[in-house]
Amino acid sequence: MNIFRFLGDLSHLASIFILLHKIQTTRSCRGISFRTQALYVVVFIARYLDLFFRYVSLYNSAMKLFFIASSCYILYLMKIRYRPTHDPSIDTFRVEYLLAPCLILALIFNYKFNFAEVLWSFSIWLEAVAILPQLFMLQRTGEAENITTHYLAALGAYRALYIPNWIYRYFTEGLVDPIAVTAGIVQTGLYLDFFYVYFTKVLQGQKFELPA
C-alpha cells in the first residue's frame, strides 16, 4: 500500500458517501444515472467474487464488501425508495454497447484464460467505461447540482490517483499490471472534460453548466 493508492481508495469511499448524502438529503436521485450505478454493481460483483478464494488483507476484504453492499444499496434507493424521482427518459445510454465490447476485450486481454481471470478483466474494462451513461446524461441536461459534481470529481480522482500508484509500484516492486493500467488511463481520460468544467466553474463558485 502506498499513499497514492490509499488516497485513491479514500476518494472512492468519499464519492459513495457524497452520493448517498445527495440522495438522502434531497430525497431524490435526480441527475444520477441508474444505468451507471447498475454497471457498478456488475463491476464490483464480477471483480470481488474473489472474496471467496483470495485473501489479501482485512482492509482489502472490508473495502470489497463495502463496495458491493453500497452499490446494491444505491440501486435499491434509486429503484424502490426514491423511484419517482428518477427520470428514465434522459437516462438512455445503451449499456449493451459497453457490455459487449468489454466482454470481447476480457476474452482477448487477460492474465490466464479461465473464468475468474476473464471475469476480473471484464470488470476492469467495464469499470473504465461505466461512467459513460452518467456523462451522457450530464451532456444531455447540460447542468448538474453541485453535490452531483462533487460526487463525480471524487469518483474520477479515485482512478486518477491509481496512476501514480502504478508508477510507484513499478519503481519500488517492479510490478506492472498492463490491463489495469491501460483501462485506468482510459477511465481517467473520460473525466478530462468534466474535470475541466469542474475546476474552472464549480470550484470558482459557479454553477456546473456546459456550453450549449
Binding site: 493508492r5 472512492h12 482489502n60 492474465y111 476480473w120 510490478l175
Partner: peptide
C-alpha cells in the same frame, strides 16, 4: 519472466 499479477488492488 512471466507477468505475475497479484490482484491485490481494489
Amino acid at each position: 519472466g512471466n507477468v505475475v499479477v497479484q490482484h491485490d488492488e481494489l
